[in-house]
Design a protein around this nucleic acid. Structure first.
Length: 271
DNA sequence: CGCCAGGCCTGCACGC
DNA sequence: TGCGTGCAGGCCTGGC
């Protein structure tokens, strides 16, 4: 389940392998992802140079000469750069083949990912147009978070995960950031004052940045672009720790369901 | 066997 | 009215 840090680590890993390279074509082994991969994508891409590797939220954006290849890893996707001749395994659905003999290979067992070709202003594309602020952007601060949450009666945890407000904060980091900010995840978003919004904006950023610095978190399905498993044993404060002692106060971590998602929190530290 | 994981889209109901 | 909001369902497979 790649979240923003994993996508950013992937982006940084891919950039030196892709930027400036020319595309030979594509191999579509199974195009039935979140959006069907068009059969003629290889023909569209062939001969184009990759100009840059960017990111918006959890979308990776390969800027090509006549458009953009938008990639999403869904919950179980991973990207690696391999020799183009390397044998494909079961869930290797898509290759972007480079002229230098390598390929960018997408593996995605659950097929929640996406490979989409877009022309024109990529940020106006339907997949990207409605996305909220980048949490690592300077614009994301307590003031903005406060303004964005004034009309939101829903629990702050669910609002924090709403990509129309702020992108890239999935379940794990929402839980972790709320713990670090000392905020009960069930608190109606609009009840948070400027002070708690400032604290939360800070911990969201801090949590994401630390995870990026660690090279991605310890996620089963994540493999970094060079092929090394992305296992950086990361200590979560609350995520997945139901019943275990809070690392700060020792109180047993609680698990509840919010909007069909698991929420973990410390009933003492987050009140 | 059945359930769970979960990002993100869609569709629906509701209220101002 | 129309929009913002909130909620639930669906997609999919591996692991327990």
């Amino acid at each position: 389940m790649p979240e923003l840090p994993e996508v950013e680590v992937t982006r940084r890993g891919l950039e030196p392998h892709l930027a400036g390279r020319r595309i030979a074509g594509a191999v579509i082994r199974n195009g039935r992802l979140r959006h069907p991969i068009p059969n003629d994508l290889g023909a569209t891409l062939a001969g184009q140079r990759v100009k840059s590797v960017a990111r918006r939220g959890k979308y990776l954006l390969l800027e090509c000469e006549t458009g953009w290849l938008i990639l999403h890893l869904g919950m179980s996707g991973s990207l690696r750069v391999l020799p183009a001749a390397a044998p494909a395994e079961k869930h290797d659905h898509f290759d972007l083949v480079l002229e230098d003999g390598h390929c960018l290979r997408l593996r995605d067992p659950r097929r929640f990912g996406a490979v989409v070709w877009a022309t024109g202003d990529v940020f106006a594309h339907p997949l990207l147009a409605g996305l909220g602020v980048e949490p690592l952007d300077e614009a994301f601060d307590g003031k903005l978070l406060h303004a964005l949450t004034r009309k939101r009666q829903a629990a702050i945890k669910q609002v924090l995960m709403d990509g129309k407000l702020v992108v890239g904060v999935g379940n794990i980091y929402a839980n972790e950031a709320l713990f670090r900010a000392g905020i009960d995840p069930r608190t109606p978003a609009r009840k948070l004052g400027p002070k708690r919004c400032a604290r939360l904006a800070h911990t969201v950023r801090e949590t994401l940045e630390q995870s990026i610095a660690a090279g991605g978190s310890t996620l089963r399905d994540f493999v970094d672009p060079s092929g090394n498993p992305g296992y950086f044993p990361q200590q979560y404060f609350v995520y997945g720790r139901e019943g275990q002692p809070c690392r700060v106060c020792g109180t047993a971590i609680r698990a509840i369901r919010q909007g069909q998602r698991s929420t973990f929190y410390c009933p003492k530290c987050q009140s």
